[in-house]
Simulated scan of single mutants.
Amino acid sequence: MTTHVWGYLSEYEKEKDDILDAVQTVFSSGKLVLGESVSGFEAEFAAYHGLPHATGVDNGTNALKLAIEALGIGPGDEVVTVSNTAAPTVLAITGAGAVPVFVDVRESDFLMDTDQVAAAITPRTKAILPVHLYGQCVDMAPLRALADQHGLKVVEDCAQAHGARHHGQVAGTMSDAAAFSFYPTKVLGAYGDGGAVITADERTDHALKQLRYYGMEKVYYVVRTPGHNSRLDEVQAEILRRKLGRLDDYIAGRNAVARRYEERLGDVSGLRLPATNPGNTHVYYVYVVRHPQRDAIIEALKERDISLNISYPWPVHTMSGFAHLGWGEGSLPVTERLAGEIFSLPMYPSLAETEQDHVIDALRDVVASL
């Protein structure tokens, strides 16, 4: 059983006519690069968040990287973030030439421990980068206060939090710039790669639109500042325009699945279910649970043809590709402990109750047998 394939195929069957019409709309327009679909999606995505600016780019990693660069953060600058995240968060920081500085996460919600951030700030710190992981927001008030106190930028990683809210504010609207991924499995997913950056600042938006287009401005071949080839594809933009109108429905569907997990798994001994923090609206990009015998559970479920994901089994700071940063095992104890206990249950809006029950019943049986 492959959860992501299930979700993609069931969604496609339901929305096939609209998706294919989106493709036809672009192909028949005669404009395949930075046309009306991209500009239209940018305007609509910005409006969804109540902000004036959005810039579509080719993927979520580059959305984060370009956001960092557009805010003037580069070689030698430090960015405070977490290791309990997907590697692209950190790759975006290092790709911009900056240095990631990690703080641990909280046991209760797996999100950035904001109480540790002040101690991580040095004269080289230029930004704080919270990750709204698994579908709910980090507590932003203390981060904003620290940023204002020290003259720092705040960049939100919203790759897993489309439409999530924090005390009424939409994820991505509580910072200097916020990056999104539209990878197919996301809450708002394309049918390929895609990303975007939103901001309230006109100069930041101007820099982003230059950076995604080689550093050029209006006139092709005239480079104003070194940039990248990071444009959002017209086809993906048109598909995203159609799906954006259904985003709140996707979120409602995910919440319905989450409620059913809570109802049927809340009494399972030793199994910790996700907690939604006060003031947060969770969008459940993934439904992450925790058990001290995670590995035994995963293996037993495989014998029943159920393969579940782990988000994430290897903290970024322990990966060999980041060894040069100097963060060895033991430096982030909560993050490292969680990596051995967390796993994700199937989560997508169209998950049928029969499919969900199959996983729930098997999980209950396996845990009871431990």
Rank of each mutant, 00 (worst) to 15 (best):
Q149S: 09
G330Y: 04
L143W: 01
A323H: 07
T2N: 07
A67V: 02
E336Q: 12
H282Q: 08
N62W: 13
Y285K: 04
D21R: 15
I19E: 08
Y48T: 09
T89D: 05
T354S: 14
C158T: 03
A145P: 01
E13N: 15
D176Q: 11
Q293C: 10
V268P: 01
E69I: 06
V57Q: 05
R242Y: 11
V286T: 15
F180I: 06
H4W: 11
M216Q: 15
V359G: 07
S230E: 15
L32P: 01
E202F: 14
D205N: 12
K243L: 04
V359R: 07
F343D: 04
Q210E: 02
A207W: 12
D157F: 11
R144C: 00
S269E: 12
A275T: 13
D249W: 08
A237D: 06
L143F: 08
D113G: 09
Y183W: 14
L301I: 08
Y284N: 10
S269D: 10
Y214T: 00
L211Q: 00
G328F: 01
N59M: 08
D58S: 15
G195E: 03
E13Y: 06
G195T: 03
V197F: 01
P346F: 05
Y12P: 06
V359L: 08
F27T: 15
E336S: 10
A54D: 07
L20D: 15
Q24M: 10
A67F: 02
L51I: 14
I251R: 03
K209W: 10
V283N: 11
L143E: 08
A96T: 05
G72K: 00
G328Q: 10
Q210W: 00
S331A: 15
H291W: 04
D361Q: 13
T204C: 13
H206L: 14
Q236M: 12
G7L: 13
F41V: 03
A47R: 14
D148F: 00
D357L: 08
V5D: 12
G195H: 05
S320F: 09
A147G: 07
D58T: 15
